[in-house]
Design a protein around this nucleic acid. Structure first.
Lengths: 337, 337
DNA sequence: GGCACCTTTGGGAACGTTCCCACCGTACAT
DNA sequence: ATGTACGGTGGGAACGTTCCCAAAGGTGCC
């Protein structure tokens, strides 16, 4: 069953009484076709339930109508899952109106990275979406060198040459700090993200800027961590040891903030009475911590949608200048501050 | 740059001083090649950095070395995200050793379902993985009819004809109930999942079986809900209204259990003193509720890995009998019971 | 020494498209 | 009436691979 041979463009052409080329033109929406021929072809297509073979098409056009979304698997674990789910959803939305397929690549180790390079080399995808890039990540450079359209969510550094989209990390962090100051907090520490990632540096920068801008002294109130919950706990412990008098913490991610909450409770500090806590991302986690977490919302789904859109544009016109988009953040105030 | 034409199999053949076919044989691991020829070909491949064009290969072999993972987007939202992340990770693991690519399809609405049908019709994938199937889902039947290898995580009903993998829903639920009875609970209610899904029915069945098996009366202690947190809250409210004396609840998912916890607290019941709560899945959520949630762990990543493996087998041998695997669950006891 | 057989090899065809180009009318300007 | 232009059309070639088949070269046996 289903063994009946699929119709090809030739079958359709014969049925419609026209040539292959005319059928191809109808399919691809060329307007150099008479209404009569077009009608005949469309009828034949419907009758035969013809669907063009995209592999054959890909062979001659050397386009595959598919893009790859690359996610470092180490970071798809732990608490950062909601981020990736949202990005995936956004990308899928951005692709919805097109016939572009989404290929998901979880990069686990060097072996899979090689495999990915092959995938790319063999031109199985028209472009690549990269998420969660580190400063020393070899992949972006590799893709750039191969001339394959590439868009990053985030960036390697502030002078990123590839197209990229990210949220206003510094601005969001600064808003969080100003909110804490407005609430009368005196000593505002921060749990920063990895400093080999621009997100990490950007949020730390925003925190520092807001403090110095208000004439405060940020020294000694930074604990650099790794975006994990355990990391957040350890960082909070360090901060409490270094600055027992702190009355507020800005964590560069919700997950780390959740860890911080655990450590604060363990040490008998009340939130928000003794210490106010603000996170970053406004993932579902923020609504479920105890107490619910004030957080800087970043439009993750929109980031996904945007990188997809930008990539499609870049595929369509590879010579267009690279894009660099910053999406706004918004402070969502809850009980923790 | 990178504009230098990619080498084809012809280039390699010329460089190695052999015919196209010999190169093809070396690439595909045929043993009808002399050692000398093989060495020459391998050298040429390395020298030219040749990578076979998989699109061209796909055209002639009508295999694409890629499979689709289909996820209903409505269910990728809400709290069920950790489930999908884990499945994706598992599938990716199951594919790691092969050159099979993973295509992710989020099905939002009818339009995208049509698009998916096209994708499948046009043979852009060798097989399909289906997650979270409902009893009346048209897709599985469609795929079956097209003769495309398909594996389900879950099943439409207990007499599923397609290959499928699921965890021991009834057994896990029964274990949860027995645990609650062992803790001395007298009135054990349940928040069940959608009854048009086998997971929902299976877990409800396990709960009922364990109770009647112990000579207890399960009547009137069921609230059917929808796997969402809000649904869990509403169901809990209904149960408390119907049976104010209940002292335990088994929820068919962690997310619904989290909702139940909220409602219990709202109504001033202490957990676990007044009411014990057990969830199902043991996702990250379980570790983060207040109090931490006792839950039936299902090996989600392993499910993903297994469906991938089974699908690959089915693609390799389409006439092999369909598989039906049940993976064991394990009760993880925490503070909520 | 000839015949059959097996190993190794390479060229032709095919997969289903799109693109290039040449062709045929018809209409319009000269 | 002839030339020019252009909308519409279809056939040939190409994309890069695999598969089929035929042929070349060697080996062993009668």
């Amino acid at each position: 069953m289903g063994g009946r041979q699929r119709p090809t463009i030739k079958t359709v052409a014969a049925r419609a009484g026209v040539g292959r080329t005319t059928v191809s033109r109808v399919i691809n929406g060329s307007d150099l076709v008479s209404d009569k021929a077009r009608a005949a072809v469309l009828a034949a297509i419907a009758e035969l339930k013809y669907v063009p073979n995209s592999v054959a098409r890909g062979l001659v056009t050397s386009r595959t109508d598919s893009i790859a979304l690359v996610i470092p698997e180490s970071e798809s674990r732990l608490g950062s899952e909601p981020y990736f789910s949202a990005v995936i959803r956004g990308v899928s939305t951005g692709l919805a109106a097109t016939r572009t397929q989404l290929q998901l690549v979880l990069v686990r180790d060097q072996g899979e990275l090689d495999q990915l390079t092959d995938t790319v080399a063999t031109r199985r995808v028209d472009g690549v979406l990269l998420v969660s890039v580190h400063a020393d990540d070899p992949l972006p450079g590799l893709l750039e060198e191969m001339g394959l359209p590439t868009v990053l969510a985030g960036r390697r550094s502030s002078c990123e040459s590839l197209s990229h989209v990210h949220s206003d990390n510094a601005g969001g962090a600064a808003a969080a700090v100003r909110h804490l100051m407005a609430r009368g907090r005196r000593t505002i520490a921060t749990i920063a993200g990895p400093q080999d990632m621009d997100v990490g540096r950007g949020r730390l920068g925003g925190w520092r800027e807001a403090l110095t801008g208000a004439g405060r002294e940020p020294d000694g109130l930074v604990a650099v961590s790794d975006f994990t919950e355990e990391g957040g706990e350890r960082a909070m412990a360090r901060l409490l040891a270094d600055a027992p008098g702190l009355d507020a913490v800005f964590a560069a991610s919700d997950v780390m903030a959740a860890g911080a909450l655990l450590e604060l409770r363990r040490q008998g500090r009340r939130v928000p009475e003794d210490v106010a806590v603000v996170g970053f991302e406004d993932s579902i986690i923020a609504r479920h911590t105890n107490p619910p977490l004030t957080s800087v919302r970043q439009p993750v789904e929109e980031i996904g949608e945007t990188i997809a859109r930008v990539l499609l544009e870049e595929i369509a016109d590879p010579d267009a200048p690279r894009r660099h988009l910053v999406l706004p953040t918004e402070l969502i105030v809850r009980a923790s501050s």
